[in-house]
């Protein structure tokens, strides 16, 4: 392996999504404003809070690469947190409950994919509909109330861990690595690129566009399911509103990370930085003492700015 010279470094620097720099600037900014910011504990907390969003963002990134957005992912998160607690309350053993949850989330994704690709309903209408259906299902399952179950596994996953990182962070990172790996190294990843870039490639190579598209939604659903379980561990309860708005933060994370809604472009690896940016901003605002009431607006504006930037940047790029 040759030593990276300055030209390589420069090229790498240009390839990094802007979110990396913004995140670093934000970290410095908040670090200067608050005491004890640069502690391992604090960093661990930020990552822990970011874990569920990272998992959901992995799924959303894959959908974004096919030029779609899955609006139902937040609802799947809520549904899974409620469903898991419910199963545990019913006395289902833990592994079986987890398996059931993941199965259900994959099923939710399957429904999205089937309706969107087989019935040819635009993705956003499909997922807008299922968003409300899954959300209502979550509300109905728990009677619109937060439901509780005490189990040591929650604490273990969310608070204990390894190398100052909780197990939830490791799980999310595993999901992230898997996604990046699949996108880069697997046939599935190439399919996703083709769905976003040029569907003709699939047909001319003898593949099925519909099957590929369904698979994408199943994957996204599964990732949202993992996100739901992680949320559940953190809040140690099943909350039908736990995933509210997460689908959109995930779109933002994907776009901030350098994925593009145009022609299946961008690097899924950047999603991690998109998630970090959002979480650093969220946590930092809180730590600096910005009242929680400002946070949503600030985050909304940042997210929107990212999307606008994406649109303008890609447009000038393509011309």
């Amino acid at each position: 392996m040759k030593r990276p010279d300055t030209a390589d470094m420069k090229r790498l620097a240009r390839r990094l999504p802007p979110s990396v720099y913004i995140t670093i600037i934000l970290i410095c900014f908040f670090g200067l404003l608050t005491d004890n910011y640069f502690t391992l504990d604090n960093m661990g907390v930020i990552l822990r809070q970011a874990a569920p969003l990272l998992a959901v963002s992995c799924g959303q990134t894959v959908v974004v690469l096919t030029q779609g957005t899955d609006l139902s992912l937040g609802s799947i998160v809520s549904l899974m947190s409620v469903f898991w607690i419910l199963l545990l309350n019913l006395g289902v053993p833990l592994p079986a409950a987890v398996a059931c949850c993941l199965l259900l989330s994959a099923l939710c994704g399957l429904i999205n994919g089937w309706v969107a690709s087989k019935l040819k309903i635009p993705v956003f209408i499909t997922t807008l509909g299922t968003q409300n259906i899954y959300k209502s299902a979550a509300l109905l399952l728990c009677g619109s109330m937060t439901i509780y179950h005490s189990h040591p596994v929650f604490r273990t996953v969310a608070r204990e861990g390894f190398l100052h990182l909780s197990w939830s962070v490791w799980i999310a990172l595993a999901a992230y690595s898997l996604t990046v790996f699949l996108m880069k190294k697997s046939r599935f990843g190439k399919m996703v690129r083709a769905l976003g870039g040029n569907e003709e490639a699939i047909a001319t190579s003898g593949g099925s566009v519909i099957k590929s598209r369904i698979l994408v939604f199943v994957y996204a659903g599964l990732m949202a399911g993992i996100g739901g379980l992680l949320v559940c561990c953190r809040i140690e309860s099943g909350n039908p509103n736990a995933g509210n708005g997460m689908e959109f933060s995930a779109v933002a994370a994907a776009l901030l990370g350098g994925s593009s809604l145009r022609e299946g472009g961008g690097d899924p690896a950047g999603t991690l930085f998109g998630v970090l940016l959002i979480q650093v901003l969220k946590s930092g605002l809180m730590q600096v003492g910005v009242s929680s009431i400002y946070q949503n607006a600030i985050i909304g504006i940042v997210v929107l700015a990212a999307i606008i930037f994406d649109a303008i940047y890609r447009r000038t790029d393509s011309e």
Partner: peptide, 17 residues
């Protein structure tokens, strides 16, 4: 030329914030 559901979803977050 943003997809309208993305743009307005973002604006809705800003509005509620």
């Amino acid at each position: 030329k943003l997809p309208s559901f993305v743009a307005t979803y973002g604006m809705s977050m800003v509005a509620s914030g």
